[in-house]
Amino acid sequence: MSEPVLDVRGVVKVFGDNAVLRGVDLAVGEHQVVALIGGSGSGKSTLLRCASLLETVDDGQVLLDGEDVTDPRIDADQVRRRMGVVFQAYNLFPHLSVLDNVTLAPTVVHGRPKAEVRDEAMALLTRIGLAEKAGEYPDRLSGGQQQRVAIVRALAVRPRVLLLDEITSALDPELVGEVLAVVREVAAQGMTIVMATHEMGFARQVADTVAFLDGGVVLESGPPQQVLGDPVEARTRQFLSRVIDAGRL
């Protein structure tokens, strides 16, 4: 593997007296898709929030293209411009139309010409089949449509890495498929992706690497066939059997 796009080294995150992350290591190479799995409270979301600098790490480093972005001397805004984040609850801006949601960052933050950004945003919206919703406001869209717009909004800044934080967890089951289809397409186009997910079937199909988070560390990681099919660690087996019992695999 060449130099990783995103390199997490020994990241620690403490809330009060609870160490959620106790030294997480995770390297994500160019065009790689990494799926983070683990029980609720295992730190998947916290890890993504640390990587996107929405939280300050309490130890360790996060490197983006080899640059230490956890160094307090760097400009965090500058770093966040190179990452795309999609949240569990969509977090679209309710007072802006779908198109304005998508064009906001490229025009305001990146200062790119409006017309060009608009055309690009429309092309992206067309790709996810929502071009005719460009003028609508988010509350007129279904959850699945909103989440697809949120993915496009994150992609519009041409990020180096896309961080997806359990993006289907708040959706009705019949809407999960359309969102995952978009992720699948984005991955096929070569985007580097880290996603926290409960969709084991999807992780198996799309991810190059599955990392199992437990007790604040990456307990086990490897190709999906191995981690999901034939895990080494007892804790991983235990977790997967619970997921199977819940009918999610």
Binding site: G10, V12, V14, D17, A19, R22, G23, D58, D59, G60, Q61
Partner: peptide, 8 residues
């Protein structure tokens, strides 16, 4: 809780 490293 983990001990902070020299970097931290």
């Amino acid at each position: 809780l983990p001990e902070p490293s020299a970097l931290e």
